[in-house]
Design a protein around this nucleic acid. Sequence first.
DNA 1: AACCTTAGGGAAAACGCTTTCGCGTGCCTC
DNA 2: GAGGCACGCGAAAGCGTTTTCCCTAAGGTT
Lengths: 354, 354
Amino acid sequence: MNIHEVAKRARVSIATVSRTINGVPTVAPQLSRRVWKVVEELGYYPNTQARALVSGRSRIFGLIVSEITNPFFPEIVQEFEDVAVQNNYEVLLTSTVHDSRRMALSVRRMIERRVEGVAVVTFGMEEALLDDLKSRNVPLVFVDVGPSLPRFSNIRIDYLHGIRQAVQHVAALRHRRIAFISGPLTLKSAIARKRAFTQSMQEIGMATEPEYLIEGNHTMEGGITAMKCLLSLPKRPTAVLCSNDMTAVGAMRESYDQGVRVPTDLSVIGFDDIRLAQFVTPPLTTVRMSQTEIARLAFNALLAEVQRKTPLPEGSEYSLTTALVLRESTAMAPSEITPAKGDDRRRETGGTQR
Amino acid sequence: MNIHEVAKRARVSIATVSRTINGVPTVAPQLSRRVWKVVEELGYYPNTQARALVSGRSRIFGLIVSEITNPFFPEIVQEFEDVAVQNNYEVLLTSTVHDSRRMALSVRRMIERRVEGVAVVTFGMEEALLDDLKSRNVPLVFVDVGPSLPRFSNIRIDYLHGIRQAVQHVAALRHRRIAFISGPLTLKSAIARKRAFTQSMQEIGMATEPEYLIEGNHTMEGGITAMKCLLSLPKRPTAVLCSNDMTAVGAMRESYDQGVRVPTDLSVIGFDDIRLAQFVTPPLTTVRMSQTEIARLAFNALLAEVQRKTPLPEGSEYSLTTALVLRESTAMAPSEITPAKGDDRRRETGGTQR
DNA sequence: AACCTTAGGGAAAACGCTTTCGCGTGCCTC
DNA sequence: GAGGCACGCGAAAGCGTTTTCCCTAAGGTT
């Protein structure tokens, strides 16, 4: 069932059928009606591949994420798809699962399908893998990490704003021993978050103890390990900021296992505000970096690039800020007396645990 | 950069180039090498759309899910994509977000892209929306809900096995007041799970109190509401089985908020074994229905159907069993004395809460 | 040495569509 | 009443492949 079939039944040329379904205004209303009628009857849906072939526009955007099963990404995927649908685009979704070969394959598949643009929302990656895309002048949009080049857009994240709020929040709650569990420092974004933390501390005149600065790996296990470490310190922190939510979840889990109550004994703050943050117990206070907003910005960046007649000399820059979301994992710092007592008890527990 | 360019540079016809990259054995090794060399040099990637157009095979499978942000789905999407990549297929992912119009649009988009098969992994849906697919003889695979028709495969889930294990597990822990929070009874799968529960109870000679049978809606909020209801009963249950994990998470949340400790005072069991089940506190004992297995079965079902030369008279049936996963949300039932006292205290709390 | 076979590669059709070009019709203008 | 102009439509080219069909040349057979 193709355009010829429709043309035959409507007793018109295939050109007229094409014009009709594409809404070209030069078709006489009468003919248009006749064509539409046949289209409905036959249930004719145009073949997108043929369309793409002749028009040179695939109406597909690629979306590369690290892994869909990481709770950070589903919202991005969902929103990206939503906007894509609204704009009559298709999404070619691939996940790198932190594997270069897989990433290279992704790129290749996208080129073979002739995507019109690619959004790269991964934690880390080898730039070189994108060379194929670059050399073909495929518009690219990065989140936070990308280089500034023509046809490449960038979404810059203002980590400082939210993290500063978080620091000030716990400071206002009279916390003085504030720890930070960073992400893997191989990641640009992790470094930026850590720097935002130290800077915010400095701003309010608080020193960051090196022992309160621990490197995690953005997983729950990493949070657990880091927390074990923090809880074994002679002077335990009373507040812990984490580089992402999964780390915070791990930190809370370890606290729970060691009988340290959140938020009574310990305040915990995450980063990202993934959905899961609302589901854990207690609901996690965290810094929101809106995933839907990222997805929408990324899509629109690509769309703008595609629709632009003459490419800009420079890449476009978009920006997104972050903000603290108060939930229930933070509270007033334990008073000076109680924690001293509590500390002893806890240290014992911690001791036996190790 | 197309096949002509390659042909010109390699001083062969486009036919030879095509044969070379497709591994047709009648190409002389010498020519083959020459062609490959040019292909590498130019970074030539064949145009999939043109390929699909002439070969009539798009190498795309559609995957329709309810919503990617529901924690049940990411694993399915990930695994489906993984197997697809291995088999040189692309995935066209769409989510219905519980909207008929959206679902209809999904189907249309898939047909327009000429997918070779569609996996439908949604909670509920209107069969009629798939008519377009059916009339075009697109192979379909359903999870659990589909009709048995030619070219349509089905993955049947054995709910009873895992749920029976769960019931026997809490019974062995001396629980006598066992509640069940079902899913929305508009869903076939929810009905099946509920039936599996009542049957399992019957098997071990326990009656199911109607007041212990509550209808939820497969969300955390539903779990909270249902739990509020259960905790306000004069005789509170000591164990709660839930129709899915999110419900269980809600149930645990409400228990926590009311000071009912899990698992000490109350045992909770979920269903699905989504990742999140490991992340909540305490880690959730649940019935596993392997999402990766579902995805793999679905993909292979489609692949088998596509590769079959003559369609089977009947649809194919696949089956998947479920099994209990022990974590930390279940424990021995509170002893006869303590709960009586506890009950009183708790009932008060519950009373003030309402 | 003439014939037949076979292997290898090129020409061209076909896939389903969009879009350019040009042609015919009817209307307006002078 | 004749020329000019839109307007609406059809013919056909072309998008980048695969694949069929056919031709050529080389090798083998008698």
